[in-house]
Amino acid sequence: MRKLSLLGLLGLVIRRDLLLAMRRRADVLTTLIFFVMVVSLFPLGVGPEMDMLRKMASGVVWVAALLASMLSLPRMFSADYADGTLEQMMLAPQSLSVLVLGKIVAHWMLSGLPLALIAPVLGLQFDMSVPALWALVLALLLGTPVLSMIGAIGAALTLGLRGGGVLVSLLVLPLCIPVLIFGAGAVEAVNSGMSAVSNLSLLGAFMLFALVFTPFVAAQALRISME
């Protein structure tokens, strides 16, 4: 029997959640397919005018990413809550925040990361330029972790409530508005010939800020939900 370090524990939680997701792939794919569908519906709905599509591209992709990440949020803790694993996590001798951080990272790897990687392909439907596509991917890579982190607090607070799925969206979406503004703003900046650095820096700052506080807050919210 060997003691696990905190990093070892973090790695174990991530590995465990990824393994569980691999054994239940449908859950991961639904988020991704939802994102692809929503983004693809816009060019069909508003018509093939390139100028208009180019202008609305970043906003559409960001709103779709926001909605898609809401889809998988209720599942972040609910399975562990239902089968009693969450109780065991609370009793773990290590800090619950580390376990929660592991779950957040795994959640991002399964929801945010695939969205960011597939976004350039969808951006082509909107005739986005190559620099704009780069800005979009970078902004999504910096912004989607914030969505997972803020979402974790919402998911923890609504754990075990009836209709918690809708409630979590109502709680979390308003808090995600800054990410949406600066994320979409990064692409806008590139489109108008400016640098996206300031927007991306702000997104990076959001991410670091959230990284410090959200695991702790989500852990406290879980404790409240379990009482």
Partner: peptide, 23 residues
């Protein structure tokens, strides 16, 4: 509640729950 995952084997379940307990 048993705190075991349907998708994992008995072996994996025990290793994971030991991991969550820190060893």
């Amino acid at each position: 509640l048993n705190a075991i995952k349907d998708e994992l084997s008995a072996l994996e379940n025990l290793q994971m729950s030991a991991g969550l307990a820190g060893y």
